[in-house]
Design a protein around this nucleic acid. Sequence first.
DNA 1: ATGGGGCCTGGAGTGCACTCCAGGTCAAGC
DNA 2: GCTTGACCTGGAGTGCACTCCAGGCCCCAT
Lengths: 136, 136
Amino acid sequence: MLFPMRDYYTPGEVAERFDLTLDTLRYYEREGLLRRVDRAPSGHRRYRADDVELLGLIRCLRDTDMPIARLREFAELVQAGDHTIHDRLDVLQRHQDLLDRRIAELRAHQTAIQHKIDYYVGVLADNAPRPAEETP
Amino acid sequence: MLFPMRDYYTPGEVAERFDLTLDTLRYYEREGLLRRVDRAPSGHRRYRADDVELLGLIRCLRDTDMPIARLREFAELVQAGDHTIHDRLDVLQRHQDLLDRRIAELRAHQTAIQHKIDYYVGVLADNAPRPAEETP
DNA sequence: ATGGGGCCTGGAGTGCACTCCAGGTCAAGC
DNA sequence: GCTTGACCTGGAGTGCACTCCAGGCCCCAT
């Protein structure tokens, strides 16, 4: 689905765009990751373009395991206005550093697991060098 | 602390080696990640070298987010004997594939976050090109 | 013999991030 | 007028992986 360029977006549209449930969207709002979202006269939420943009970043940060609490702090900086850009940069840069370390750690563990795999492959090769031959 | 080469290891030694709590160690045993561990006459646990080795792998797999349930399946294969090596390889190889994808995903998100960082840096640069100069 | 350290048990509690639910409203289409 | 679908609310429930606790036992050193 192509996401249209509009002033307001419905919960369903936003949920689909970011592959979140409506419940999660409301949960994020409750937790202060989004400001109090606008409403249609019916009471239904109407997300603005900047809500959607922030949600995009939130999604990214959640997908890289930033906890809700830190996301809330970040969202508060966003709400507080442009003078907090330095602080926001700080949060994001620290997160990148953490991600660097996390990726390096994953790769190190992957290497260790590979050694185990290689060991098992060796065991299999020793136990059955050729199908038609008995190991004495 | 140098981990000594012995037949049996105490809970404290094992916990320190893998940076786990005693509670977690017991929890893993309860969850079937380890066989029913040997006991000293006092009732205290005595981990064998192969328990420790398996724990090393478990630690690695947990650190790369393999859920306890899959770890238990793996542990059951280990208990079942050498004829399950092929299945164990399968589990490990799938996990490596998953890790490849996870790392790629993290890197992609990292790139996206970097764009946001670059944007913020740009905003800061525009707002204050030189400290001693007013922006008209 | 006394005190401390290390460990034991069963079971309850925690924190996180959702996820589900009942009962209701609203706007549009038949 | 009635149904359908999208959304609303407050609050409860879920799943995972630990984590904590009370009360107790064993062994060693003072």
